[in-house]
Write a protein that binds this DNA or RNA. Structure first.
Lengths: 218, 218
DNA sequence: GTTCGGTTTAACAATACAGTTAAACAAATG
DNA sequence: CATTTGTTTAACTGTATTGTTAAACCGAAC
């Protein structure tokens, strides 16, 4: 270990650093920050545990890097769709389809993020800024602004039941994310294995938008 | 400490034991099993930390007692309503109203249960049996059986759009529970303080059933 | 007033874990 | 081949944490 004092670790050395971050992602999302062990991360990354500290110094720094990364994986895409000029119906279909696909590939993500947010609520701000690189005051109008216009116009025109943009987003996201957050329980109570759970979520990609749009009929 | 070997701790000595369990409930639901400290539980209960071990021996036993208790707090009421003879519409209104009230009083419960289930998925079975004192095979028909009949009959009669009982339960529970599970994030992104969050959930008690029943219109 | 069960005190053992460090090492670069 | 840079080895520090234990304590029941 030569230059920890002399020169700070190279900001983006790719290989080992990202392998460690990947490993940390796996371990933290499975066990949570408090339950994760630095040694397990090192093992998962296939490196010595000294190297983990070499790149990330402390567990907390590593945890925050992983959290930021996980948050960035989940929210920006959603924000982009909600804020876009697409018609309401298309927004619903895209959100559901894209997010279900994404969550099927990252099953631990919702549980991890919700658990971390409950244990360290101060990270909510950090999460928000990781979405857009901006503070809450900037994200909020981006998320709800366009939507409010659209919903308001549709309600006036009589093509949709009136609903606040907040409820619109919250209801939709709830039905998309919750089944993944509660996946072990859903699987147990419905008697599903992994394959059947996946199949159910695949079916949900078409059923859920229909259901949701039906709720919005005037 | 006299009789730890001789006689096992009295199963229900009320006072101190329940105070410890209450304290453990508070600490575990806030910090999660891995993040909780036995010393903090003792402090919260106002007893010496030796006494916590006297009654519950290990952290894991205490954690399981708390988990069982928390699960029992959340699910049996819901199961009873879904399994009842009440008409669909009444089921929706009761579930929403009762659960929102209950969750407003126990804000950490959803986050805690979801986190624990993700970190220790083997507890899903334990949770199921804590609901009804029975295995999954018994709970499942109790939860979905009556509902399946009702939904099927209504679909035939043309009074409701067809929906599986699984989707019916999952969609409803999602929209009820998720806002609490993601509460810190919801508060941050919508710019709410505790009082406004509560107000929003109170309003939701009437809005959500209307929304949900609208989705079920044929 | 003595006995007894719950409780505290206070100290202890054992381990788990985060984080540090010096030295050796290896592979690429010049 | 000498230098640099990333990596391993291996040992170590310090502390947090779980769990145990013996002895004293204290109030209530007998």
């Amino acid at each position: 270990m030569a230059q920890h004092r002399g020169t700070p670790p190279p900001p983006l050395d790719a290989d080992s650093e990202t392998r460690i971050l990947d490993a940390a992602h796996v371990v933290f999302t499975r066990r949570g920050t408090a339950g994760a062990r630095m040694a397990e991360i090192a093992r998962e990354a296939g490196v010595n545990h000294a190297l983990v500290h070499y790149y990330f110094r402390t567990k907390q720094r590593l945890a925050e890097a992983v959290f930021r990364r996980a948050a960035g994986q989940l929210f920006p895409a959603m924000l982009a769709v909600f804020a876009s000029d697409l018609p309401i119906e298309e927004k619903v279909r895209r959100i559901v389809s894209a997010q279900v696909d994404m969550l099927l590939e990252n099953r631990y993500l919702p549980g991890y993020l919700l658990a971390e947010l409950n244990h360290y609520p101060e990270r909510a701000e950090l999460l928000l800024s990781s979405i857009a690189g901006a503070a809450a005051d900037v994200v909020r109008p981006r998320l709800f602004g366009k939507l409010a216009e659209q919903l308001d116009a549709a309600a006036r025109a009589g093509t949709l039941r009136p609903i606040t943009p907040q409820a619109f987003v919250l209801n939709l996201v709830s039905m998309v994310v919750y089944p993944f957050a509660a996946r072990p329980f859903v699987m147990a109570i419905m008697g599903l294995d992994d394959a059947r759970f996946t199949a159910m979520m695949q079916a949900r990609k078409t059923e859920l938008p229909d259901f949701y749009l039906a709720a919005l009929r005037p």
